[in-house]
Design a binder for these strands. Sequence first.
DNA 1: CGTGATCTTGAAGGGGGTCAACTGGAGTGG
DNA 2: CCACTCCAGTTGACCCCCTTCAAGATCACG
Lengths: 255, 255
Amino acid sequence: MTITLLNPPDAVMPARETWADVMRLLGMAPESLDAATARVPIATRRVRAFTPLFVEGTSADAVYLGRHGAFKVVATDCDGYEQVLDFLGRGDLIGCDGLGSRAHAGSAVAIEDSSAWVLPLRDLNALRRSLPDFDDAFQRALSHQLLHARDMAELMSAVAAEVRVARFLVHQAARMERRGESPRRLLLRMSRRDIASYLGLAHETISRSMTLLARWGCIRVDNREIDILDREALGACAGSTRKRWTPADDRRLVA
Amino acid sequence: MTITLLNPPDAVMPARETWADVMRLLGMAPESLDAATARVPIATRRVRAFTPLFVEGTSADAVYLGRHGAFKVVATDCDGYEQVLDFLGRGDLIGCDGLGSRAHAGSAVAIEDSSAWVLPLRDLNALRRSLPDFDDAFQRALSHQLLHARDMAELMSAVAAEVRVARFLVHQAARMERRGESPRRLLLRMSRRDIASYLGLAHETISRSMTLLARWGCIRVDNREIDILDREALGACAGSTRKRWTPADDRRLVA
DNA sequence: CGTGATCTTGAAGGGGGTCAACTGGAGTGG
DNA sequence: CCACTCCAGTTGACCCCCTTCAAGATCACG
């Protein structure tokens, strides 16, 4: 049984892009790959909103690279509770946890109409062994994932709810900037519920924290559109690990 | 400046062990390596209790493999708060986050007199390229680290303090078992403070949760010696993500 | 045996979970 | 176009659990 059977409407598209595009997105110098392999076409999976790219427990014979849209990685607990582990987008590797065990430890679900490139493990390993530069780039991407896990730990280390939300927004903004888009205007693709699960808070608390940050003048909230008005202040709030940060503290620091 | 300068008493010892030992610990079949490389000696770093194996921000030109003792990985926040990211021991890879950026994102500190094998990146990459089996094993180890990050997220997803502590103990027991030791009797190497930082709780709460788990008959606590008396009950408590678990619930399930 | 660190236990206060009600927008069908 | 439903988001009220502060108990080390 192939994954396609699980997702009838999501076709594996004939490829227009090649491995060269993948490598560029992974931060590899384009001149270091030979023209032959660069032109090898690569498959694209289109995934409709709220349908899975892959599901927890299935065998992992490929990793994916976000092409457009957005995904969330979720792990379903033994008692059915769904925990959001990560939000991923264009240029992000998806499904790396299955590299070793050959089974996905979480599900990747599109949170809007999306697509991802399919990197079959067989091809991936072959390329890694024939192109040392690609091997390096992929290794770098993997360790970047490890760093991201560290970021998440940092996120959870903050006890105050607004601090977690502030850090989440800062991370999202940084991700936007890395992608070349404006870091001032965020368009969140995920629901408050997903953010809540990701941050380990109640979804009502996400709302409250956002209005609080808005009242402090850090951001402007309009549903899923977030304007970052005062990046300094937002960063200051995100920085305080333990004690609660308030605008009053900020004024005291300035004075 | 070498790392040795930072740690005068910790010498880089002449090697008695070889890469063969490392590979065995990484789960690689011993027959798949040729006799020549297997005998290449490997350096060992001895680290006294409470001294760092490496510190945050320094350049990472090697990863380490726990040989004996125990380490904690900590990240120091911008406001000086120290967050424990992980506890590592024999057979665990330490410092993988530096693989890509070539700089350590956290410090590794020995929490008792310990030692680790030094795997220079140069040698590591050379071996990976000449021995595909080693490459696979290392890749597996890396993705195992990613899985561990997922575990940590699972840890934090539980809101109730006893649940977090229960999960922590279950994880520790599983790790003991994987290492071939008894999973019933834990000898925690880290302080309550470190556990608290790791779990995102106050250290007093760790104490309280442990006595609570002991009162429920799940464990017996004697300072850092933990006996797991009722693995079922401990697992049941660790399983409940949201709602609070009490022995009463258990009895209802049994009845 | 003394001293400091670690661990435990108690009391008080607050922050966030939970429950509930309201608003607003999207989709549907009349 | 409107009535209706459903779901996402917001806000309010209440209460419990965890943090914080404080003190006592125990352990490690000299």
